[in-house]
Each structure stands twice: as C-alpha cells, then as structure tokens.
C-alpha cells in the first residue's frame, strides 16, 4: 500500500537520480576540485620527493594567445607565398622555415610548405606536411579548409 501511496514521488526521485547521475560526470572542462593525490615514492628518484601536485593541472591547452612574434611570422609567411606564386619553391620553403623556427605551431607554415612540395610533385612529403599542419589549425577555419583541400588534392594525385 505504501508503494501505491507515493508512486509519483518515487517516480520523480527515480527520474531525478537517474537523470542527474551521468550529468555529474563532466565530459569537458577542467575539474575544480583536485582528485586525491596518489603519490607513492617514485622509483627513479627516491631522494627528492615533495608533496603531490594535484593531477588536475594536466588539462588540454586552451587556444594560445596571440604571440608578439606573430607579425614576424605573418610577414615571413606572406613573403613565402609570394615566392611560391612566382614558382620559386625552394626559396619560398627557405623563407617559411624561418617562420617555423620562430613558431612551429603556426599551421599556415605547413600549408605553404605542403603547397610548394605539391607543386614540385613531391607528393609524399607534401602529404606529410599537410597532415602535420591540420591538428595545429584548430579554430583557424580558413587554413584548416585549405589544408584539407590540399590534402585531398595530394591524395587524388598519388
């Protein structure tokens, strides 16, 4: 009888609990509370242990802020495109490698190099460079699209 007396309440409780439980396990975003540190003594370094640093500091990077060096990189990339358009692929690659030295995470660098090698019919290397640039493109939609388009061209040319 008791069961019949509160059917709606039980149903609501069930819905609440079952509905909320998965929601309590987030799928993204850094945790706010550190998990319990598990710090057994390191086997490689017995003499230099300090209190465990919470593991929640290891989270995916947010998009990198614009670096002050970006104008130098942009200038080099622009110069490299000019040489590339003029058919001076080796010179273009030499220029864009200077940008690579300054910031190797700029995806357009790989786009320039991949385009040059594609034009030079070095398809294998062109493909690898395009693949290397893609994960770096992130939110840079235009470069990402160009890299994807180039990659399709390379693959169909192979």
């Amino acid at each position: 009888m008791v069961r019949m007396k509160y059917p709606l309440s039980i149903l609501l409780v069930l819905l609440f609990v079952t509905g909320c439980a998965p929601m309590m396990a987030p799928v993204s975003g850094p945790p706010s509370t550190p998990p319990a540190p598990a710090t057994p003594p390191p086997d490689d370094e017995p003499g230099d242990v300090r209190d465990g640093v919470p593991g929640d500091v290891i989270v995916p990077s947010s998009p990198a802020p614009e670096r002050a060096s970006s104008s130098a990189v942009a200038q080099l990339v622009a110069n490299a495109w000019e040489y590339s358009r003029a058919g001076e692929y080796d010179r273009s690659n030499a220029v864009v490698e200077r940008a690579l030295r300054i910031n190797h995470t700029e995806p357009e660098i790989y786009l320039v190099m991949a385009s040059n090698y594609f034009a030079m019919a070095q398809l294998q290397l062109a493909e690898q460079l395009a693949r290397q640039g893609l994960p770096l493109a992130g939110s840079n939609g235009a470069v990402k699209r160009d890299l994807q388009r180039l990659l399709s061209q390379i693959i169909s040319a192979k």
Binding site: P31, P35, V59
Partner: peptide, 14 residues
C-alpha cells in the same frame, strides 16, 4: 571505472 568530478580517487583522463 567511471568516476566523477569531486569524488576522491577520480581523475580526469584523456
């Protein structure tokens, strides 16, 4: 096994 944020012994792993 699956844990949850804030629960002791849980860790956010890729």
């Amino acid at each position: 096994l699956l844990g949850r944020k804030g629960c002791a012994g849980s860790r956010y792993l890729p």
